[in-house]
């Protein structure tokens, strides 16, 4: 089995453990878009401190790990600024309208066999695949 798959599995177990800690500890569903979005649109200001603590953990931990291990990481993000901005707007608006993203609908939804989570995951994967076909293989812009 390629090392990338093993790292994927190990990383995945950590992601799921993070979700289990939040659910069993605080009684909250670990959804990245919901936790962040609640701070942006003020709907989650009643729990602002714990949301901010989660966000700080997500941002700071990879930095600390890379510093300690002396490694570098790269996102290999496209240099097409138009694509980056359009993608950011779509991800931000879409996840809030659908009330969840890969972590909330994907990880936390599928693991409780939620119909909404499964349907959302099917639609965002299909939309992502078709978008790549259009912009990479047909238009060749990313």
């Amino acid at each position: 089995m390629p090392m990338d798959w093993i790292w994927g599995l190990i990383g995945g177990l950590l992601i799921g453990t993070g979700g289990a800690v939040l659910l069993l500890g605080n009684g909250r569903v670990m959804g990245a878009s919901g936790i962040l979005g609640g701070l942006v649109d003020r709907s989650g200001w009643g729990t602002a401190a714990e949301r901010a603590a989660f966000v700080i953990g997500v941002i700071a931990t990879p930095l600390l790990m890379l510093q300690i291990l002396g490694l570098e990481a790269d996102t290999h993000l496209t240099s097409n600024w138009f694509a980056v901005i359009a993608a950011g707007l779509l991800v931000g608006a879409g996840t809030r309208i659908a009330n969840g993203c890969t972590s909330g609908h994907g990880v936390c939804g599928i693991s409780r066999f939620s119909l909404r989570g499964i349907v959302a995951t099917v639609f965002y994967i299909l939309a992502g695949g078709l978008t790549l076909v259009l912009f990479r293989h047909i238009l060749g812009v990313i």
Partner: peptide, 15 residues
């Protein structure tokens, strides 16, 4: 919402 999110996810590869 999921379709809009998926389009952005495919375009940049970030969620």
């Amino acid at each position: 919402g999921s379709v809009l999110f998926g389009m952005g996810w495919g375009l940049a590869g970030l969620c």
